[in-house]
């Protein structure tokens, strides 16, 4: 499996660490109801098909990446940096 890191280019899966669903990006506000936190931390759509999840290019540029891919075929459709270029000052 290879991920096309937006900074480093196509790299072997072994350079990456996997976290979980991209839902981890949608952190509820501190005063959100308990249900929102339960959903955020635990409950998952877990699709058999297209999903978005988070990978960390640990043995590379250390960017966190949002990967759009298919959980049935392992086809990778897109790999985007979690931190937008705007936020990081246009550098990578």
């Amino acid at each position: 499996m290879r991920l096309n890191c937006p900074h480093c280019g196509p790299r072997d899966r072994r350079e990456f660490y996997y976290y979980g669903a991209a839902a981890y990006l949608d952190r509820p506000s501190p005063d959100a109801p308990a249900q929102a936190w339960d959903d955020y931390l635990h409950n998952r759509d877990n699709p058999a098909g297209m999903t978005q999840d988070l990978w960390y290019h640990e043995q590379g540029c250390t960017a966190w990446l949002k990967v759009t891919r298919n959980t049935v075929t392992h086809e990778i459709i897109a790999v985007d940096a979690v931190a937008t270029p705007k936020a990081s000052g246009g550098m990578a």
């Binding site: 660490y17 976290y19 960390y56 966190w64 937008t84």
Partner: peptide
């Protein structure tokens, strides 16, 4: 380190 990278890039990259 990984945790800090995540918190930074996911929630406060700016």
């Amino acid at each position: 380190m990984r945790h800090l990278d995540f918190v930074h890039q996911a929630f406060c990259a700016d």
